[in-house]
Nucleic acid binder design. Structure first.
Lengths: 207, 207
DNA sequence: ATATATGTGTGAATTTTTTGACAATGACGA
DNA sequence: TCGTCATTGTCAAAAAATTCACACATATAT
C-alpha cells in the first residue's frame, strides 16, 4: 500500500463526520461537490482523496452516504473499539474522560493516571485515578491501544518515554512540546496554544 | 506583505516555545540545527521560515535566544494581551478556563457563556457563567478579541453566526464541524476526534 | 430506445512546500 | 592580523499537494 498523506487522512476523518451528519438528515446520496462544500474544500480534492482507497461513487450519481461512511470506517479502523488511557488528571485530562465525541467513535477511556499522590484514588466519572508509576501493569491489564498525554510540558517527554516502554504505539499529546519517540510509535499533537497564536498573528496583521 | 503559509506560522509558534525552553535553561545562543532538532524538522526549514520575516541570525554563530524570542513575539502579536471568551460551559469549556499555557501567553479568559439556564450564574474559577443570549453586549463590554467555541457540533454554526454578528473576527473551534464565516473572520480548528482517528488509521494499518 | 444531463475517476498541469547546496559572513584562536 | 571553522541566508532543485479538465459511465426523461 502506498503512503497516504496525513492531510488526506485528516480529511477522510472530516468526510466521515459530514456523512454522519447527512445520514442523520436521511440524505441517501451525496456528490463530491456537496461534500466539498460542507468541508470548505474543492470537489476535486474529495474525489482525489477517496480515489487513493478505491472507487466508491457512481458516475453521474454521486456516493451513497451509508455505503461511503462504512467504507471510511474500514479505512480508518473505526469498525472496532480502541482502549484509551489518559495520563494527567488535571483539567484537560478530566474533561477528556467524558468527551462525547470519543465515546461515539469507539474510543473508550479505560484508564486515567497521575503521579500526584493526592489525586490517586480519586474518582473521575466512574474511573479511579491510578498511579502512573504502575503504568506497565496498567497498560497491559487494560490492553491500552492509545495514550493521551495531558501533563505539563516539562513532564511530557518523560511520560512519553514510560509509555513507550509500556508498549504504547500511539500517542495523542496535549502538552505543548515535541516528543521524541522510536519510529514505530506514532504521535499526534493537539496544540491549543499554537492555534491561538495563529489567531493572534492574523489579528495583529490586520491592523 | 506577501502571504505567509499557515504551516510557517504554526512552526513559528513552536520555535517560540522552544526558545522559551532554552532561555529557561540559560542558553544564550542557538543554531537552526538545534532548533530544528527540538521540533523534529530540518534546519533548512527553520532558516527558510525565519527568512520570511527578516534576518535574525549571525553567520557562523546562530541566533541569540532572547532576541529571537522577542522578534517572534512581535511577528505573532504576542507582545500584548488578548481578551478571550469561551462559549460552552461543558467539560472542555471549563477546563480551558484555566489552561495555564493560555494565561502564560497573554490570552486572558474574560468571559464564559452558555445558553443553559441551569448553568448561568454558576461560578467557574472566579468567572460567572453568562447568558449567551447577551453575547452582543458582553463581547462589547469585555472587548473580546477571540472566541473559543466549545459547544456540541450541532450548535456550533449557530454560535459562530452569533459571534460574527457580535463582531468577533477570530474563532477557535473545538466542535467537530466546519464553520462557514465571512472572509474577514479567521477560524482555527482543534479537532481531537480527527487526531484520534488518524491514530486509529495508523494502528490498523500496522496489523 | 435514445438523448440528455450529471458527476465520477484520473492523468496532466500547476502551485506550494520542503530540501539541498553553497557562497558569504562573522567569531575566535594563534 | 590572518586563517580556520561554524552557520546563516538564499537560490535552485526536488517533492508533495492541489487543481484542472475531460473522457466516460450512469441515471432519468421523453
Amino acid at each position: 500500500m502506498k503512503k497516504i498523506s496525513d492531510s488526506t487522512i485528516r480529511r477522510m476523518s472530516k468526510y466521515y463526520r459530514s456523512l454522519d451528519q447527512l445520514i442523520d438528515k436521511r440524505v441517501e446520496t451525496v456528490s463530491s461537490d456537496t461534500l466539498a462544500e460542507m468541508d470548505g474544500i474543492t470537489s476535486a480534492q474529495v474525489r482525489k482523496d477517496l480515489s487513493f482507497f478505491g472507487t466508491f461513487g457512481k458516475r453521474g450519481f454521486g456516493y451513497n452516504t451509508k455505503a461511503l461512511k462504512k467504507q471510511i470506517e474500514n479505512i480508518l479502523g473505526l469498525y472496532r473499539t480502541w482502549n484509551v488511557a489518559i495520563v494527567g488528571a488535571g483539567n484537560i485530562g478530566r474533561a477528556l474522560t467524558d468527551y462525547a465525541e470519543f465515546k461515539k467513535q469507539g474510543f473508550i477511556i479505560r484508564l486515567i493516571m497521575d503521579r500526584d499522590k493526592s489525586k490517586i484514588g480519586q474518582q473521575v466519572r466512574g474511573l479511579n485515578i491510578e498511579d502512573f508509576n504502575k503504568v506497565n501493569d496498567l497498560v497491559k491489564d487494560e490492553q491500552i491501544d492509545i495514550a493521551i498525554i495531558a501533563v505539563p510540558a516539562d513532564a511530557a517527554q518523560a511520560v512519553a518515554d514510560k509509555l513507550v516502554t509500556a508498549g504504547i504505539k500511539a500517542i495523542l499529546n496535549f502538552a505543548p512540546r515535541s516528543l521524541k519517540v522510536p519510529p514505530d510509535v506514532t504521535v499526534k499533537y493537539e496544540n491549543m496554544a499554537v492555534e491561538m497564536e495563529a489567531l493572534s498573528y492574523f489579528l495583529s496583521k490586520k491592523k
